[in-house]
């Protein structure tokens, strides 16, 4: 296959950045998108140019490291697929493909296609946990959990924290990410004691970090490589409403 790649090149956070075109020839269909960048980078290095910088690690769709906008869609055209699992057979000979970093106020660009997503960690630090000291748990079977609840919790827990939902949202909201964490823990009996504070703290942190509000566009669900359902956002909203009627946000305390 022959392809034209237009890639966002930006040397540093201060640099203005620009799209640069690269012609790719003889691309095999079973090359992954990241492998295509590998091939390009080998070529660039040999020519004495700077290779394209992009985040990646597992290359099997689970670590959440990879991800950028591919012709305007976070992670590209294939549904339920991370960038590392996107193969060139999804494109046609002669296609022009544009690769740009995830764009969002809360995700500043570091270099080329790499952005700083540490804001997502901060949301989890605000309350995305159950405070169970090591060694304090009762027997694993002490509290039965219905299969249905456990499965639903797992549906939410499947989030890989890639940030595609934020990048796809016109408001740059992290609601799907936050809702997934809140639902994963809130569906389990172990998550109940801190449920209200969790919602208050995580939502407050999200706002503080510059993520936008949710206005139900649904773009997040459409690009989520793990198919996290937007229904979880409704759940988060309910939790948040109940919590704000009853409590105010408190700082995390030692157990």
């Amino acid at each position: 296959m022959k392809l034209t790649l237009k890639i966002w090149r930006q040397e540093s956070p201060e640099d203005k950045g620009r799209l640069v075109s690269y012609e790719m020839d003889g691309v095999a269909e079973d090359t992954s998108f990241l492998e295509l960048l590998d091939i390009l980078n080998q070529r660039l290095i040999k020519k004495g140019e700077h290779p394209v910088t992009f985040d990646h690690d597992c290359r099997e769709g689970i670590c959440g490291s990879c991800g950028f906008m591919i012709s305007g869609i976070a992670h590209g055209p294939q549904k339920l697929t991370t960038t590392c699992q996107l193969f060139m057979r999804q494109f046609k000979d002669g296609d022009t493909i544009v690769a740009e970093p995830f764009r969002s106020r809360a995700f500043p660009v570091i270099k080329d296609l790499v952005v700083d997503r540490s804001a997502l960690d901060k949301i989890v630090q605000a309350g995305g946990f159950i405070s169970a000291r090591t060694g304090s748990g009762p027997d694993g079977n002490a509290i039965p959990i219905s299969k249905e609840k456990a499965d639903r919790s797992m549906d939410a827990a499947a989030c890989i924290g890639c940030g595609a939902c934020v990048a796809a949202c016109p408001n740059g909201s992290a609601m799907l990410f936050t809702a997934a964490k809140i639902s994963h823990l809130g569906l389990l009996p172990q998550g109940q004691p801190e449920r209200k504070q969790r919602a208050l703290r995580m939502v407050a942190k999200m706002q503080e970090l510059g993520f936008g509000a949710c206005s139900n566009h649904g773009e997040c669900e459409a690009v989520c490589p793990k198919g996290i359902s937007i229904d979880f956002i409704a759940r988060l909203n309910r939790d948040y409403m109940v919590a704000s009627a009853l409590e105010t946000v408190e700082p995390v305390k030692k157990v």
Partner: peptide, 21 residues
């Protein structure tokens, strides 16, 4: 103890219809 700890932390292990692990 690992299983107990993970359950306490909210790891959604697979369950049987009984609700047990």
């Amino acid at each position: 103890g690992i299983i107990d700890q993970c359950v306490a932390l909210g790891v959604p292990f697979a369950r049987e219809y009984s609700g047990y692990l």
